[in-house]
Design a protein around this nucleic acid. Structure first.
Lengths: 226, 226
DNA sequence: CTGGATCCACTGCGATACTG
DNA sequence: CAGTATCGCAGTGGATCCAG
């Protein structure tokens, strides 16, 4: 049964929190920032949310016009225009949260989380030629493109790609913190690269280089690499 | 007893929400955006929060470095540098929440809420000479200054002022929506103006004029004017 | 009087089990 | 796969009480 409790405050901030302030709500929105997702995909990305609560949140967010079913009535959830308006807020909140101490114990890390971080922190050389990477992460395929000094991320297969990478979010996060581990990750099988290895190195290093000057992301979001 | 429950997610967004995602936490931060406040002032601004919960939140936010006691050990709470980093996020969230339907029934509206809205929505004529207004709102005195096309708000008495206004947050909010009511508000005593009445009109109208083109605040945050 | 602490009822949440 | 059903408990809301 969906939550119905309000701050009873006219302020826009309070009204926003009436809609997206319940527990897990903003993390559901986060998961939908890059691509529509199914119920089971959301559960996989948010392993600590219980199924009934996820169902409640999806109902509430849909009722409040933040998300919708992709073909109406289906089980694929996507952001509405209004929901997409939360994107800059979530990105800013993520920047703010970077220097909050890591929670103790093992922590989840979804593909979407790492990719949003990558997209925001990477500063590829604007002079370098555009490069497209195919990335298989958390059971989905993503298109990661370095162009004009920034990184774009899309769900789905690229038309063409200089390189294909397969790994898990935790490993990718570790590599973003320390690109030098790429060789050993390939060696022990936690990452697999086919194609132009130097493109991968450029991608990883562009986070290291760019992170220092323009945003407070140096500590990064390295998962407790279990 | 303070809350200790984590999303157990390495993502910066989740870690931010571990700190400021609990109920009422961001509204406490909101109240401290313009000036340090005492426990009783926070209770007055947030009439629906229970005293034990407010005490819990203050403890947690202090423990997490978002707020501190103004002279350490006192009962005046203020934002830390880290806490102030939430300001742009809260402002953006407030913009987003503007077109969330007003909650049913009577709603609270703190002085801080109205002033943050005023500051963000007002677009005074950049060509007009700077003007300082003294504003007595919700039992505190504020300095509101129109200069170089925007409005600055500070707590405390101005050194000099073109006009002094005394009213309540709800009334001010109604006037921001409809400056034409200023005369009747003065007549029935819900607002009192001493000094340059035209300065007040300029301030109020600058919200109407500026709100349309640059931000989505036309529906405003009018309280249920009971 | 401010600045809380204590007690209690309730409901949203978390975990597990189960169903169309 | 996409949820629903159930249950114990933590977090919340509200009232009252207490210390400086």
């Amino acid at each position: 049964m969906p939550t119905s409790r309000s701050y009873r405050d006219s302020c826009g901030i309070a009204r926003a929190l009436d809609v997206v302030g319940e527990r897990w709500a903003l993390l559901v929105v986060r998961e939908l920032l890059l691509t529509p997702q199914r119920f089971s995909e959301l559960r996989h990305a948010l392993p600590h949310v219980s199924s009934n609560l996820l169902a409640d949140r999806l109902r509430e967010l849909e009722h409040n016009g933040v998300i919708r079913r992709s073909p109406a009535g289906s089980r694929v959830y996507e952001l509405t225009e209004r929901g997409r308006g939360l994107e800059p807020i979530l990105v800013a909140l993520g920047d703010w949260g970077i220097d909050v101490p890591q929670p103790p114990g093992p922590a989840a890390l979804s593909a979407t989380s790492v990719l949003i971080f990558l997209r925001g922190a990477a500063r590829p050389d604007p002079a370098a030629p555009p490069t497209t990477c195919r990335l298989e992460l958390g059971g989905r395929v993503w298109t990661v493109r370095m162009a004009s000094g920034r990184v774009e991320v899309q769900a789905g297969e690229p038309a063409t790609a200089a390189v294909s990478i397969r790994t898990e979010p935790t490993t990718l996060s570790a590599l973003l913190n320390d690109p030098a581990r790429l060789a050993s990750a390939c060696a022990d099988g936690s990452a697999a690269v086919v194609g132009d290895m130097s493109a991968v190195e450029r991608l990883l290093r562009s986070v290291q280089d760019g992170g220092n000057n323009s945003s407070p992301m140096s500590t990064s979001l390295s998962g407790s690499a279990k």
